[in-house]
């Protein structure tokens, strides 16, 4: 059984919590596990220390995102594949897990099409199309590379940096990367660990959704969660059996999510 776990920046914080590590260790003893991490906040902090103020742009939907120019993608790649990834790998090695840090660039693990244009609302409040910078939409995942690592009992830790058709580094979203990685290895489950229990409607946790129900719900939920639901639907469409959105702040979050406790499960099975 293959399980892909996306660990977001809100869970990483000052590093992975020791209890989360133990949980990962316990699950990894029984199942083949792949971790995909985020870490946008660490990128912003390092860029600031390097004197590169991050420019944030706003979409017509009101979403504020980093604008990834050439200098930023260099810092992004350095921090994501370096500090963030290696801190996680080291923490896992420390508890005896055979973690291998790998970015989407290594072995062309994640290929993406560079976005040509982004639609933003400029400082005058008008909509404008600007150069897409170094962001991309994932086009393929080298599942064989991950399967090879898994078959040799390694625990891959994937950072969300992709390779473009022109061999450039691209900033890709961690949730979408986790979905494509899960699809690439035909995982049984993909788990998105975040700082809330799951999809909430009028304050109530939605425990189970079919893909059809999730699609209908998407416009009614906030952007951060909507993106996880979108990633979930993508994973299901690529053959993943279930997607779980769960809190990473509870005891044994991965085991708890796999047991479908206090989380949102999206599945058609």
């Amino acid at each position: 059984m293959v399980v892909v776990v996306k660990v977001g920046g809100s869970i990483l914080g000052e590093g992975i919590d020791p209890s989360v590590l133990d949980d990962i260790g316990a699950v990894a003893a029984k199942k083949q596990l792949i971790l995909v991490h985020g870490g946008g906040r660490a990128v912003t902090e390092t860029a600031k220390r390097l004197g590169k103020e991050q420019r944030f742009i706003v979409s017509p939907g009101g979403i504020r995102s980093r604008y990834t120019d050439l200098e930023t993608i260099k810092i992004y790649t350095m921090v994501m594949t370096g500090a963030v990834n290696k801190d996680i790998v080291t923490a896992l090695q420390k508890i005896g897990l055979p973690a291998v840090g790998i970015s989407g660039v290594d072995g062309a693990l994640i290929k993406a099409d560079r976005k040509k244009k982004l639609l933003v609302v400029d400082e005058r409040g008008r909509k404008r199309a600007i150069d897409g910078g170094y962001t991309g939409k994932i086009s393929s995942v080298n599942g064989n590379l991950l399967k090879t690592l898994l078959s040799e009992k390694y625990l891959p830790v994937v950072s969300p940096v992709a390779l473009s058709e022109e061999f450039e580094y691209l900033n890709v979203d961690g949730d979408r990367a986790a979905a494509y990685v899960a699809g690439g290895v035909k995982a049984d489950s993909v788990i998105f660990l975040t700082d809330v229990k799951g999809v909430l409607m009028e304050g109530e946790l939605v425990k189970k959704l079919t893909s059809k129900e999730a699609e209908a719900l998407r416009p009614k939920i906030g952007f951060g969660m909507e993106k996880k639901v979108l990633a979930s639907l993508e994973a299901l469409s690529m053959g993943v059996k279930e997607s779980i959105i769960a809190s990473g702040l509870v005891k044994n979050p991965v085991a708890s999510a796999l047991a479908h406790r206090n989380c949102t499960v999206i599945s058609d099975e």
């Binding site: 979409s59 979403i63 980093r66 990834t68 992004y76 244009k117 982004l118 691209l170 900033n171 979108l230």
Partner: peptide, 11 residues
């Protein structure tokens, strides 16, 4: 023609 990308602009 405007070529508009979705709102997923990376991390």
């Amino acid at each position: 023609p405007a070529q508009i990308e979705g709102e997923d602009w990376g991390e």
